[in-house]
Design a protein around this nucleic acid. Structure first.
Length: 481
RNA sequence: GACCCCAUCGUCUAGCGGUCUAGGACAUCGCCCUUUCACGGCGAAAACACGGGUUCGAUUCCCGUUGGGGUCGCCA
């Protein structure tokens, strides 16, 4: 039954995106892992919007993130926390640290610091704040001069992080400089805010991108200064583009809504793909949400970055399309078809789409292909033939089409059995292989060389429409005119 | 430049000292099924980065090299 790793209902995870853009694919995976870990343990999964950057944070981005989370089925517990609203609390902690002598005021100007860094760069020294105000008294500063509050970080010893994914990572405390807690305008920085929020929200498992690994040591400094318990950390490797470099737009660094709207992927396919990127469960490839919840654990998360592979995503998406409910697919494909057709589908056309879905869905890897492949059902006569289809008909004798037209026209019953027999008879009489008969017929009926089975096509189209489309081609046939 | 992380087929991965003549999946290439295209089935090709150790024995442990990545903001 419960084959998965041991459960711990006290687990609290969170996803904390900054709303400066859409929910990108890497963020989606981080959210998924946090969600899975919480659900597996029967714990809590929280959503926190890190909107402390007032200039770059937008309402649109917040909506896009929430929309993306919902689409992927990643539901969170409780209300969304907006970090900016908690600024007073962050400031309070900074003041407390200041009072306890664990933080201090630094009056160095931005220009001064830039000069310091430039010098360090020139001397090929590590770039970090040199602690010039660490032991000076504020009275040494010009009256009323602006200042930032910095953490008085430990200079001696080293810190070892027991990361749930990366293992033990040790960094010398001397490597870390005194980070800014409060900006000169009094607003809290990200470093302070995350630590305080995670603590106050009871977050005990921080699962985030590898790019935060170095930050963790700084954050640990604040936690130590406050005498708080540190959460467990799990730094998951980043997703790279197909070329191994940082995920660029061209290589998939798009918002999840692009995967939904532009590429036509199903959320379950995205989740399955993302789950397998960096995490594995033996040889399992297709993993249901229930299995994922049951099996997910942090110890099986890989330590190396993985490359984003559209081909594999397409394959998985194709699998889920084949599995998906016909009505659901019809609803998803309808707007795409309507966009191409430039008019709304009538209720009978929608019914036809639904009826065709079982034959369409095994041939598509995404919803765009699905829509594209269904177009022949709705196109108005006379059909515009694809180049290959036109060529196919050119190479077909008009007499064969005429025989087909007559045979099919005389058919009293329009079901697959009758149609199959009719076509076989025609092929036999003309001494042709089935393909030589079916292909031109397909070209005439769909305008393409690729379609669902020819009998299915005829049934979907109906006898009248099928014959009419055949007539269209017959009237154009040189041997007939 | 400093610090940190990573390293199995083209890609995602299984492997947790002997079971490995290294398994699966995607992609690729054959064949089969077949009215086309898919689906499905069968098969092929394809990897332990390199060099040192440790060990009776390393893909698995340690060190180094190389190669990738991340971080060094009054951004998050």
């Amino acid at each position: 039954m419960s084959a998965g790793p041991a459960k711990n209902p006290s687990v609290v995870t969170r996803f904390a995106p900054s709303p400066t853009g859409f929910l990108h694919i890497g963020g989606a995976r981080t959210a998924l892992f946090n969600w899975l870990f919480a659900r597996h343990n029967g714990g809590q999964f929280q959503l926190r919007i890190e909107d402390t950057d007032r200039v770059r944070s937008t309402k649109e981005a917040i909506d896009a993130i929430i929309d993306g989370m919902r689409w992927l089925g990643l539901d969170w517990d409780g209300d969304i926390t907006y970090q900016f609203e908690r600024a007073p609390r962050h400031t309070e902690v900074a003041e407390e640290l200041l009072k306890a002598g664990k933080a201090y005021k630094c009056f160095a100007t931005a220009e001064e610091l830039e000069a310091m860094r430039a010098e360090q760069r020139a001397k090929k020294q590590p770039q970090r704040y040199d602690g010039r105000w660490r032991d000076r008294d504020p009275s040494e500063a010009p009256a009323g001069a602006p200042y930032v509050v910095r953490l008085k970080a430990d200079q001696e010893g080293e810190t070892t992080l027991h990361d749930l994914v990366q293992g033990d990572v040790t960094v010398k405390n001397a490597e870390l400089d005194d980070m800014i807690l409060l900006r000169s305008d009094g607003t809290p920085t990200y470093m302070l805010a995350v630590v305080v929020d995670d603590h106050d929200m009871g977050v005990n498992h921080v699962i985030r991108g590898d790019d935060h690994l170095n930050n963790t040591f700084r954050q640990l400094g604040i936690i130590r200064a406050m005498n708080w318990d540190a959460p467990q950390y799990a730094h998951i490797p980043l997703i790279h583009g197909a070329d191994g470099a940082k995920l660029s737009k061209r290589h998939g660094a798009l918002g999840v809504e692009a995967y939904r709207d532009d590429f036509g992927y199903l959320p379950e396919a995205i989740c399955n793909y993302l789950l397998r990127l960096g995490w594995g469960h033996g040889d399992d490839e297709i993993i249901t949400r229930e299995q994922a919840i049951e099996w997910f654990d942090l110890t099986s998360v890989g330590r190396s970055p993985s490359r984003f592979d559209f081909k594999k995503l397409e394959n998985i998406n194709g699998h889920y399309i084949r599995e998906a409910d016909d009505q659901r697919l019809t609803d998803l494909v309808k707007p795409r078809v309507e966009k191409t057709l430039e008019h709304a589908l009538s209720s009978s056309e929608q019914a036809l789409l639904l009826q065709a879905m079982p034959f369409l869905k095994s041939r598509a890897k995404n919803l765009n292909e699905l829509a594209e492949n269904s177009l022949f059902l709705f196109e108005k006569r006379p059909l515009k033939l694809e180049e290959k289809a036109a060529k196919q008909l050119e190479n077909t004798s008009g007499s064969l089409l005429a025989i087909l037209r007559k045979t099919l026209g005389d058919l009293p019953a329009w079901d697959s059995e009758s149609l199959e027999k009719a076509l076989h008879d025609v092929a036999e009489q003309a001494d042709l292989k089935m393909g030589k008969v079916a292909q031109p017929l397909r070209a005439a009926l769909t305008g393409r060389t690729v379609s669902p089975g020819i009998f299915d096509v005829m049934i979907l189209l109906g006898q009248d429409e099928s014959l009419a489309r055949l007539d269209d081609q017959l009237s154009l046939s040189p041997t007939h005119s």
